[in-house]
Design a protein around this nucleic acid. Structure first.
Lengths: 330, 330
DNA sequence: GTGCTTAGTGGTAACGTTTCCACAAAAATT
DNA sequence: AATTTTTGTGGAAACGTTACCACTAAGCAC
């Protein structure tokens, strides 16, 4: 049926092992290498990666488990991870969990069965505590979300700082009654909540944080309900790009103007946040850096398995726009 | 080192073949199956997928090659493909070509080496003509872009119709000087251009189509240049979601109001197109359907390899918004 | 009771590579 | 010139599965 290394060997008039060496490393005379390459071209030989992986015990595959590739944060990170992987001659297996712990568990065992070289994982709060380094046969790097202290290499945003930056920004523009909308399933949501509450307290203000399931629709209805309340906040701090869409939708639906009726500040500097009037103030996450750094940590770990665990904390950049324009003096 | 099927057999007190049968199909007594499962739990056995694939000659893997997963169209399609694949117990290998023919060729041979069960591919114009069914050892389904007539199963939008719908819509709102911005590397761009020109001609109007490389920045600078010309068009038809971002950016930068100074109609009903004032008129593509349908075609082809090639053409839905509001009578 | 199917099991040969080992010839060292 | 090292090569044993074949014991029809 399909041509294998034996066929190439026969055509080239050399042994199987010589073909293997000619295609990979190993001492082969220039003459023989030429013959082998010619035989490969003549036969249309394509090495079988399953066989190679089985024999060599190196899969050259890395796993990437995220909540939802449609979340623009994960889209960008995923793309960066894949670029880095393919550049290093590795493949990527991508899995979407939709923040469902059952699916996380499923994909985690899939990764074991694939014998991945390494894994990059953005876990929910529910599974993050169950994670045990010693049950895995490969290194794992956590992204976006914090794991149990010091067990895994991690790369994430300084979420407390970022939230505080947004609070400070809002307060400096005159807002005092500021509400916060956070993702319920991730440690990220919790950290951003904490940073928000701490910054509010430091200013002598009391905040109100609400948690919502991670979807545009959930954010929209939560925001709509909140904005209909008689003593609705003057400003909303919104924990991610999906939520931002929902919040702006809700504001529009209620006929509320941004920022006059409700100011908005959030996360993820998507192109459209600049375009929707009057421009949304956001924390820009260094998404490419996060993906690249995660791969770098993974490769480092593979090289030096016993090195101490590293945690890379990156700072976001505050992009101020019209959605948080200064409140007119009362 | 890592536990294999032999270890399980020893612990369960049965033969290797019995373990294999107990975990897969095949006649096994209830009692023995129970023992095997216990042994699997006790040993923490995880089957080695590389070995399984090599021996069974079934990789249960499908390839997905797209231009850029960050293009929201491909993000959504990709997600739908992955859902369908995992539901069928298959994995997905995702590759981004950035519309580069060299990378397309690279990934195509990668797919051969992976011995994928099937491939879903959105090729550039440059490679689409080179594609030969007989050089591939697996079925391939083309998405979004048309291939050489009748050689491959295909699922795509009715691009001519969609463009014509937008033209008709614009004309009915009073616009006559309508320009078109299309992607240079895909047949999609060409088809949308054709539909646009035909519809214009049918109305007795002459159109002007410009092609740009597939990136936000290219679209932005092309649009900016066009809109600075003295006899700039009244309306712009924009061939995809990435371009839309660029065009709106360009209009904003030049201080042009939408639709008073420049009307805009485009493709891809992203959430933000509703939010950016005054709302962008777009053709909504049935992205989930496209992904699911591609997988369905693939499975159908695997079941009946010799069935005639099928081409599924889906209609877009026109979502009219403020960016194409009626022109005041002159 | 004899033959015939079928469920359940074990042994073993693949699947297509890479890697280890042995060995010869050539090259480098003493 | 004798020796050690290096270079290039082939044979064969893995890697961890599944699938094929052979076989026993049990069930069934006559």
């Amino acid at each position: 049926m399909t041509v294998n290394i034996k066929d190439v060997a026969r055509v080239a008039g050399v042994s199987v092992s010589t073909v293997s060496r000619a295609l990979g490393e190993g001492p082969v005379s220039a003459e023989v290498r030429e013959q082998v390459q010619a035989a490969v071209r003549a036969t249309g030989y394509k090495p079988n990666l399953s066989a190679r992986r089985l024999r060599s015990q190196r899969t050259q595959t890395i796993g990437l488990i995220v909540a939802d590739i449609r979340n623009p944060f994960f889209t960008a990170v995923g793309r960066a991870v894949e670029d880095a992987a393919y550049r290093a001659g590795m493949r990527v297996i991508l899995c979407n969990t939709d923040e469902d712990p059952a699916r996380e568990a499923l994909y985690l065992t899939l990764m074991q069965e694939e014998r991945v070289t390494g894994l990059i994982f953005a876990p929910t709060r529910a599974t993050v505590d169950r994670l045990q380094a010693d049950t895995l046969d490969f290194p794992m790097v956590l992204i976006d979300r914090a794991g149990p202290g010091g067990q895994f290499d991690t790369v994430l945003l300084d979420n407390r700082e970022a939230s505080a930056t947004l609070v400070d920004h809002l307060v400096s523009r005159g807002y005092t009654r500021i509400g916060g909308l956070f993702g319920a399933t991730s440690t990220t949501g919790v950290e951003r909540r904490d940073g928000y509450l701490a910054a509010m307290a430091a200013r002598g203000l009391t905040g109100e944080a609400r948690f919502v399931p991670p979807s545009v629709d959930a954010a929209e209805s939560a925001a709509a309900a909140w904005l209909r309340e008689p003593d609705r906040p003057q400003a909303l701090l919104v924990s991610n790009g999906l939520f931002l869409t929902g919040v702006v939708k809700a504001a529009r639906a209620l006929g509320l103007r941004i920022p006059q009726d409700i100011a908005v500040a959030g996360f993820d500097n998507e192109p459209w946040t600049e375009l929707v009037e009057p421009g949304l103030t956001v924390i820009e996450q260094p998404v490419e850096t996060i993906g690249r750094e995660a791969m770098a940590l993974l490769f480092q770990r593979l090289k030096t398995p016993d090195a101490p665990t590293r945690k890379v904390v990156l700072s976001g950049r505050c992009v101020a726009r019209g959605s948080t324009a200064a409140l007119p003096r009362a």
